[in-house]
Amino acid sequence: MSDAVSALNGQRASGLVDLADAGPMGMITLRGDLGLLGGALGSVLGLSAPELRRVVSGEKGQVLWMSPDELLVVLPYAEAPGVAAALEAALAGQFATVAVVSDARALIRVSGAQARDVLAKLMPIDFADFAVGELRRSRLAQVAAAVWRDSADEWSVVCFRSVAGYAFEALATVAQPGGEVGLYH
């Protein structure tokens, strides 16, 4: 089998914040009634369906709220097909879909005290009251992206694989030293 390579292939950059490609990550899109999906997630991963615009984290991975009928499960790359098969079995006969989208997405980790300033340069989001464990889908410059806060200074950005280079370069550009904003700290 060929080795999986993420779109950014481990690229890193630092400036006002540290940017890092998360590498190949397993991602599974679930669509259907969130109550139904939550039951399947509970039996397979021991995780519950997140509340509106929240992220649920556990030992086996994270579950992200994407829309009123869509969730994204983030977990280690190699585990995605197995977990997807188990979820499909748990949802058999129900009105829901399971799809492995690991190779269709890119995940960028943004860390540093100025992460909110850097993200706010590209995303039309008010980061002032953005809590840990919260998620927002929006745009990053000209492409769709979702951002969530893992801890006080650690953020994750997920976008489509085809625009990963654009998203990373845009973030690296606005994170260049000299471009401090000082809005959020």
Binding site: L52, R53, S67, P68, P124, R137, S138, R139
Partner: peptide, 12 residues
């Protein structure tokens, strides 16, 4: 009204 987000026009 579906996700409760208040955002600017360019997101819609």
């Amino acid at each position: 009204p579906c996700c409760g987000v208040s955002a600017e026009e360019t997101e819609f």
